[in-house]
């Protein structure tokens, strides 16, 4: 059969081109434009090369925000992933208790982020918040508006409360997908609960854990709403994470050039680390496909 030249085929891929262009490429290129030029108006703009990048990379405020951001994401992963696995293992497998546990677990995920922030902002207050008041009543001085450590603790506990359920739900789904025969085989072998976890449950959960780690890393690395509502980045700069820092530069000071440069650095960090996580975790331990 002869090949038929038909330019109409372009119309079939056109929608995808338009959607990708509008949703991803054009906004991204706008940021790139701002990162390499000093733009006052569409007619009035100057090429600055890597000047913005050089200045923001030398900026101590950015270093501080970046370090805080890494520490925060690291702490979040370190707490939420093991805690999520442990809770998923402890959850009932079937019956009404399982349904109840699932509903309770899902609740924090259903609350809008700024509402979560507001809840904790009030709950943790030393003067009128139940949580903050109780801690102080127990004789532990606690005030997140003045003490950096207290502010960090508040944000971390809030994030654990808000997002561990996501890890739990993913792990729970992974656990339920393991055929009962595996557990029987382990029982017949005389395997200890630890061996069952290490050699059956953990490898079988690997696929969902990979998703959980990626999602929690990306989300925690981009955290903005909750600390913005609770501490506004304070006291001082104690809880100024990357996105809060970025917003300050872009909206607070209208330094669009440096803000665009930070955005690109920010984006590249997330992209690189997600890529690394993905590769490490898919190769780790077992040849089983995720």
């Amino acid at each position: 059969m002869d090949k038929i030249e038909n330019n109409k085929a372009w119309f079939l891929v056109l929608p995808v081109f338009v959607i990708v262009a509008i949703s991803a490429i054009i906004p991204l290129m706008t940021v790139v434009n701002y990162a390499f030029q000093d733009i006052f108006s569409p007619q009035d703009r100057y090429w600055v090369g890597t000047e913005w990048f050089e200045s923001v990379l030398a900026d101590d405020d950015l270093h501080g925000a970046l370090i805080r951001q890494f520490v925060f994401s690291f702490v979040i992963l370190l707490i939420e992933i093991p805690l999520g696995i442990a809770l998923a293992l402890a959850m009932p497998a079937r019956g009404w208790r399982a349904s109840l546990a699932l509903v309770l677990m899902a609740l924090p995920l259903l609350i809008p982020w700024n509402v979560v922030g507001t809840i904790w902002q009030v709950f943790a207050r030393a003067d009128i918040g139940l949580g903050g008041w109780l801690v102080n009543a127990l004789g532990i001085p606690y005030n997140y508006t003045s003490d950096p450590v207290a502010a960090w603790l508040t944000i971390v506990v809030m994030d654990v409360w808000h997002w561990t359920p996501l890890v739990v739900l993913l792990c729970y789904a992974g656990l339920r997908a393991i055929p009962d025969a595996y557990y029987q085989a382990a029982a017949i072998d005389g395997a200890t609960p630890w061996k069952v976890f290490r050699h059956i449950e953990l490898p079988k959960m690997r696929g969902v854990l990979l998703i959980a780690v990626l999602l929690r890393f990306m989300d925690s690395f981009m955290i903005y709403t909750e600390p913005f509502v609770v501490t506004g980045g304070g006291p001082g700069n104690a809880t100024t994470f990357l996105s809060i820092h970025l917003t300050k530069i872009a909206i607070g000071q209208m330094d669009l050039g440096p803000a665009a440069a930070i955005s690109i650095i920010y984006f590249l960090i997330i992209l690189t680390l997600s890529f690394v996580f993905y590769n490490v975790m898919t190769r780790m331990g077992t040849g089983e496909r995720a």
Binding site: A181, A185, I188, I200
Partner: peptide, 12 residues
Amino acid sequence: AFVYQQFINYPS
């Protein structure tokens, strides 16, 4: 010892 119709081995 038990052998199942599914192939049950320790995946890792």
